[in-house]
Write a protein that binds this DNA or RNA. Structure first.
Lengths: 197, 197, 197, 197
DNA sequence: CGCTAACCGAGACGGTACGTCCCGTCTTTAC
DNA sequence: GTAAAGACGGGACGTACCGTCTCGGTTAGCG
């Protein structure tokens, strides 16, 4: 009964479309990393991707939408951090990962552009905030459970604690000339949660 | 002997120059706040300032230099915070002020533009970082002395502590949809330094 | 066999290109006639032609190239003069035509601009000279054959004779306030070649 | 009684003014010769003359007026040609002189610019035409008297004859790539007036 | 396996802002 | 009290991209 299949799901779109989307997004990320949000040129992306400019405009309404999608792709690549150990060890591992991503990765390279773009475009801003919130959930949960279990000192707001830890890393990236290094993770935890006894 | 003064140094420059600089910088800040770094147009600034485009280029080599100078002016306007009380009270006052500035002021409005611009221009980046460092010095000093006096728990790095506090505020401004409110200052201090006994 | 034709040459270019070229050249000539070489503004030409400035720069590298091309178009419009009669009659007809063109036509309007432009741009100068030489060939040939046939007095250089005749017309247009009128054609011939007996 | 002198004639103006006028006119001519009418920049003239731009505008209302005055100075320098010999010899001498001036001198260099400028500015045009007419008077007079004396063939209009001779030289300068050389003077006279018996 | 629709690259189009140059005016300071 | 120096508002230059559009040529997948 193949016809049944026909009008069920399978709106299998032209495969050229997905292929175009992917090479364009990749080229967009390369462009962003290379010249930043300010210098970002659709025409360069088209050239990089070996694609006609019109193909880009066929899939995205404008420059910002493309950038937003590129960011999306970028963030989807950031993988969560699930491992074992004491809460303090787990937390340190998370912070080291965040530091890596914020400082080194394509995500980090695009971060200033992303912040500026989010400031101008509401849709992008929503996505930006939502993603950031999502990414922090495991950290907040970890802190909450560690407080509950007595591993971390009581009387603290888990979310605020997480923001203080993560915020330090972003602050160092965006506002100082000394980005946070993974080696500082333990010192940061000690500073915010107090040293272990 | 006024005549004596006459032919000494007195390289009094054309007063029109300073006047132009001021109206242009003011217009540039307005433009930045209105349309951000990406949409910033010298021609709009000229129109806003009621000035010929060439007058702007007479004083700044290009768009970025004007933006940098506008930021400089902006930051110079942020006033230091000197008052009395317990270290915890002083710190809360500082954080409330930072929150105000980061969230509400022209500085806050331009912050994303500034971060993106700093990412692209080394000279601007240096200035941005230097200013931020300068602005935090009193906070770090306050924390250091409070630790020394026993008002704050020992074993913490004052600088890292300050960055965790300040960083939380910037993080909330730049990466979340819930900017830090002055009312949260005490909770933040409690979270990072532990509650008062 | 239409298919055979299909994949032969036929690199039919975008028809918009030719259309743009034509409206722009027409507008350029209008501009030249109106404000001359000195006041000639690409932006005005674009406005006149109802075209984006960038469209002009897509087809010509700069102002001078556009002017050169406009002159070319102008000169291509000057039509040769082929008719019957005695050599003297033919010559008079030619001179009347030259007088018309030099004094009244778009060519005449643009002539000073053309001379000035040719002075500044070697390529344009070459074209200008070549065209002028080409345009005079029939006149020189006519004079040469009339000398050979005894219709015109012997011992004269046909080319120099032609230049004296044509040159008078240009001189009057460019250096005096009394342009040459067609009615003077016979008097000019009499003056240069002597009256008919 | 020196005071009497004071308010009589003595329009002796500030000698600096005349001095300024002269250096500026000289600089203007140099500029014209160097970059032509099109590239002529008041600011360059000021720099060449070691003079403030405002000094130029104090003496001339605008660019065109300065150029016109420069032309005037230029033409005033062209000296008449008065010598002895047969009419044919005198005429040849005149034509050689005109050829020299038109081809080689500053006047010749500025000629295209002058023609174009005259086309745009009525005052300049008047001057241009008047000067040219003036310059040709001796030639016309010479031809007229030579016709009267029987040295030149009868039945010719002296003015038109002069224009044919002079016009050839200008035509060759402005419309061809082979400027008239003094050596051709005799051939030109032979062509227009017929060879001597 | 051949048709047709869609997607594609290429790039022309009307615009807008860039940063430069020069205009002609106006202001300030020095001699 | 003139002149230099040069700041000013203005406007055209030629460049780079924007986002829209019109082209043929290629390719997928249905019939």
């Amino acid at each position: 009964m193949p016809t049944a299949l026909k009008h069920t799901v399978d709106p299998r779109p032209d495969p050229r479309i997905e292929r175009s989307r992917q090479v364009i997004l990749a080229a967009a990320l390369a462009e962003l990393g290379a010249v930043g949000y300010g210098g970002f040129a659709i025409e360069s992306v088209a050239a990089r991707a070996g694609v006609g400019k019109s193909t880009i405009y066929r899939h995205w309404p404008d420059k910002l939408a493309l950038i937003a999608d590129a960011f999306r792709k970028l963030q989807d690549e950031r993988d969560p951090e699930l491992e074992t150990g004491t809460p303090r060890e787990k937390l340190a591992r998370i912070l080291r990962h965040v530091a890596d991503v914020v400082v080194d990765s394509p995500f980090g390279k695009c971060l200033p552009a992303m912040i500026e773009a989010a400031e101008r475009d509401p849709a992008l801003r929503r996505y930006h905030h939502r993603f950031q919130a999502e990414a922090n959930k495991p950290t907040i949960a970890l802190i909450a459970s560690a407080i509950a279990s007595g591993d971390f000192p009581a009387g603290r707001d888990p979310k605020l604690t997480a923001q203080a830890l993560i915020g330090t890393i972003f602050y160092r990236r965006l506002m100082t000339d000394a980005p946070f290094t993974p080696a500082e993770a333990v010192a940061l935890i000690d500073t915010v949660l107090g040293s272990e006894v």
